[in-house]
Nucleic acid binder design. Structure first.
Lengths: 236, 236
DNA sequence: CACCCTTCCTGTCTAGTTGACAAGAAGATA
DNA sequence: TATCTTCTTGTCAACTAGACAGGAAGGGTG
């Protein structure tokens, strides 16, 4: 970093959020319908501009989430995806956006706030096969967010963040299957998960309202990094 | 992203670079000695501010590298590490820095440029055990860059980017050992690398100026993602 | 030319892990 | 009781990683 002082170029800083959750065993992402130009009426990731020069970036992200979808995710961990700053990504001028990823268990239906006309959960089907395009470069940001979540499932206990506690190992398996888009063998999954020390801890036992044998309940263990990792099946 | 228009907060955008290379089988990072306040005289990562509102961020990174160390890395891939934007990271005001990682084979000795008093290669020993602290939050950025390089060695052909072509498999092994900070069994390493399709391709055969049996030469193969991955020994 | 030294390369053995699949356990329901 | 569903455990073959030995291919030295 050089030490000159001169009149700064006019660059706006924005934040964008990729909020993922599981709804009826499918991966969903939170989108808003834009209420203002540009891209009015199109879907976009929730986000907005930094208010003041000394506002923390994560705080700005949480604030925008409150304003646009009436959601409070201040307890959740926001993981930074990176900065998206192509010179032409916003027709209004130079905007550099810093994107964050968050994983949430069951969430209330979002309500539209001030800036956005509508907020809604949409299936996060493989971004390449999406029919509708998102505003700005948000298709790219969403794809990066999903890919980040996929790789983080392997080496971190992120999957438990999708599950309201207590959860069964079948619940946990559904998370992996939904995010990775694959089917896993139940027996092998049990062996693997229970063989990772500190991944999950037993709780009581409760029968689920479904049919079949009752499932044991677990809660998230103390470990955040998994050894050995839970690797996804190799594709090529 | 919301659509308001108002006077933008005064925020400066900077770029910082983590340039890693191997020198005499040890991992080194390019640092500059700052020639201006703040942190004058202290070591820092090369980098600087965006010149104009429409300058591409990667272009700015390469330009700063030319200015500060007379290095041209325009052929190299710059991977973004993320944005570092804590409100108090720079005493001059609000600065958000976007950090990039680059891997380079043998490079010429850098020469100090305009902004920096001196540019030099320093051993990138484990950042925690460093004796000198870098300026700003560059210790954190450097640590993140090294960690990113470590994980990328497992699943990408990044290691070949450290090696001038053609290289021997011993050269390649030294890359893994230096970046990971571990010793690997030579025989097992051979078996592993040659078992990954498209990782390395044979070239001619040349005896190295050292003693011992001549080594076969290879060049980087077409694959950038490795299947199966080259996993590092598990620590815990 | 023996002989040793160094480094490269290949082979073998064991222990552990993965994937496929079967079978038992524990409830609900007819 | 029989049957259905789902959870849980067990088994077996195929594969992989780590440890290690030993041969191959040069150079150096008497």
């Amino acid at each position: 970093m050089s030490g000159e002082t001169w009149s700064p170029p006019a660059i706006l800083i924005a934040v964008d959020l990729v909020i993922l959750t599981l709804r009826s065993s499918e991966l969903h992402v939170l989108l808003v319908e834009r209420g203002t130009e540009p891209y009015r009426g199109q879907h976009a990731l929730p986000g907005g501009f930094l208010n003041t020069a000394d506002e923390d970036i994560v705080d700005a992200a949480l604030r925008e989430l409150r304003e646009e979808a009436n959601l409070d995710l201040s307890r959740l961990h926001l993981e930074q995806l990176g900065a998206y700053g192509g010179p032409d990504r916003d027709p209004r001028g130079r905007v550099i956006s810093i994107a964050y990823l968050a994983i949430a268990p069951e969430l209330p239906e979002p309500v539209a706030g001030t800036d956005a006309a509508r907020a809604l959960w949409t299936p996060a089907a493989d971004p390449l096969s999406r029919t509708t395009r998102l505003a700005f470069d948000h298709d790219q940001i969403l794809a990066d967010g999903i890919e980040r979540a996929r790789t983080k499932l392997e080496r971190t206990s992120l999957a438990t963040a999708f599950c309201p506690e207590p959860f069964t190992l079948s619940d946990l398996q559904q998370v992996y299957e939904a995010v990775w888009g694959v089917r896993l063998d139940q027996g092998n999954f049990y062996r693997k998960v229970r063989g990772v020390p500190g991944f999950v801890l037993p709780a009581g036992e409760v029968r689920r309202p479904t049919k079949g044998r009752p499932a044991r309940l677990y809660k998230a263990g103390p470990r955040t990094t998994l050894h050995p990792p839970v690797v996804r099946p190799t594709l090529p």
